[in-house]
Design a binder for these strands. Structure first.
Lengths: 338, 338
DNA sequence: CTCTGTATTTTTAACGTTATAAATACATAT
DNA sequence: ATATGTATTTATAACGTTAAAAATACAGAG
């Protein structure tokens, strides 16, 4: 007999009985329908408060079709330490005080996130979706646009139809990082990039090339590895590269884990970061404030990104057009190597 | 807008119409009620499949009171890198294939997690709750036991009534860590502990003291800081300690961030970890595989912890008694400093 | 004093599901 | 034939909410 907690929870019916009006009237009073008498509304609100009433989400959802749920699909890869937690923190901060709940679904496997999104839409599991790691021709974005389902992507696409997004300014990051390396006297700079398919690879590359071209500096893109390679692979590859001729003396690492992996490789080679090799990393977690030797780092504020993602999504759900919901997030700060 | 046939989601009514039986019969067939004829059941399942039917969660929830939601309350502090993401990954892995959804709520502010839990219970927002950072006399646990609401805590309490939990074996961690330091020739070992109020502080302390007493080694608990102090504070405090007389030459750091902070302080003092000061850290993220100089580390597998938390919670929801749902998670591996 | 308009409230009818009671069919025992 | 089961299905009601239609009251206009 697990049915111990007998219905002690107040409903609109409870309020209606107490105030002496109909349930429908209570519903509309709580919704602040201007058609209801000011007086009645106040009384209903007061007694609702007294009784500790809170609406039944299931009933609302069944009746209205609005789930009051936001879905967040997390990428399987964590090349950024605490990526998920930071984003979740930001989203939740924005959702605080709204009736929205955040459902989190990590995306194991490869590209099953498309399938997950399909199910969320088909079964109307949420009012809106947030996901990350977009591609220029992102199938998920196409699907969601087609289905006219509210979403905001963390990252851009190159589709003709505009869509809401929040994206870090990776172009400027890469350009500034390259400029920093050059200013410090690097002769040949290298950059580690994300896998080909992701849009932000292009942004990083363009920023990098912009600085490279302006200065005419020797450069390279690290081969055989990407931001998504596991730490050991990155370490090993960079270690090897520094054993070859014409190795770079300046490195751009757009992620916490890859930054650490590169530093480890450099050190294992007997080189000193900041001296023999200039390094600029993109960090989100703050680890590089604690890692020695200190290296220059630029911050991407994922918590703020999360807040903006949620903010734009709520606006999208309320009908704001996509063109007003596109945000490129600036670099939020940087730390000089001591 | 002529639709009605195309975009409408199939319901039990759709199935009933197609098969030619009543809605109630469909419901029971889908539930595999043995009272239903085998034949009918099969037919209903088949057509449900064909129509792409999936039950409406809101309706089920309204009718049955079961939300099919698990709530995870994340601590505000992230002394462990990626704590949230790892735990979420584990929980989600276990929940995969079940009808349960994971709602994540980071706990900003101080101890508002008690308030959040109260609301989850009062408004029946979930079928079960997971939370962490327990105290010996944890108010949340008392409340949930009192309310007879399913939960599993990540961490133990010292309450008389048994409750489900998953807890890392911090006792053994601290004992082994201390033994390692002693074996490496440390003369005075120190440990950084969590704030007083948390249960796992005692476990760490007891493990530490067990090893200390057995060996009679000189020892200390780092003062003026805790695991929850921010990285800068930890760094500064340890830096200062190493400038005083009788400084420890062996350190136990039970967290990623504190480990990094300590290493930074040691290095900033001109000392070498692994040489002048022996260090053992507890890591969950893998960062210490990448940090130089290498230090000894013991792993806490948070992803596995998440899976167990979810597993025990599902069992609890199904009525398994609390005494069968208590798990102390062993150390999952260690990395020797090179 | 009826007519009509306006303000407010009540009634009705769902949303999709499931638990319970009631009904049906058909066999077997009396 | 009537009663008594047994197996299966249907009918009914409800979970709590809200949108739409219908009803009520009461004002001022004619």
């Amino acid at each position: 007999m697990p049915n111990s907690t007998h219905s002690k929870r107040p409903t609109q019916r409870t309020i209606a009985a107490k105030v002496g009006i109909s349930v429908g009237a209570v519903s509309r009073a709580l919704a602040n329908d201007p058609q209801m008498a000011e007086e009645t509304r106040a009384l209903v609100h007061k007694t609702a408060q007294e009784l500790g009433y809170s609406p039944d989400r299931a009933a609302q959802r069944l009746r209205t079709g609005r789930t009051q749920v936001i879905y967040l699909i997390l990428p399987p890869h964590e090349e950024i330490l605490g990526f998920g937690t930071l984003l979740i923190g930001g989203i939740s901060a924005r959702l605080e005080g709204t009736p929205y709940h955040l459902v989190v679904l990590p995306d194991f496997g490869h590209d099953e996130s498309a399938e997950r999104i399909r199910r969320v839409v088909r079964d109307k599991l949420a009012d809106g979706i947030i996901f990350s790691r977009t591609t220029p021709d992102d199938a998920r974005i196409k699907f969601l646009l087609e289905a006219d389902f509210p979403f905001v992507s963390h990252g851009r696409s190159e589709l003709a139809t505009p869509h809401p997004y929040v994206d870090f300014d990776n172009f400027t990051f890469a350009r500034q990082a390259a400029d920093m390396l050059i200013k410090r006297g690097a002769r040949r700079i290298g950059i580690l990039l994300p896998p080909e398919r992701f849009t932000f690879r292009q942004h990083l590359l363009h920023g990098f090339m912009k600085a490279v071209r302006a200065s005419g500096i020797d450069h390279e893109i690290l081969e055989g590895v990407s931001l998504d390679s596991d730490a050991d692979t990155i370490s090993a590859q960079i270690h090897q590269r520094f054993g070859e001729k014409n190795a770079p003396d300046g490195l751009i690492l757009p992620g916490d884990v890859s930054g650490l992996a590169a530093l480890a490789a450099i050190q294992d080679r007997g080189l000193v970061a900041g001296q023999d090799v200039q390094v600029v990393v993109k960090q989100t977690s703050g680890v590089f404030d604690l890692v020695r030797p200190r290296v220059a780092s630029l911050y991407e504020d994922l918590s703020a990104a999360g807040e903006t993602l949620a903010d734009l999504l709520l606006k999208r759900i309320e009908g704001t057009p996509a063109t007003d919901l596109q945000y490129i997030q600036p670099i939020s700060g940087f730390l000089r190597d001591a």
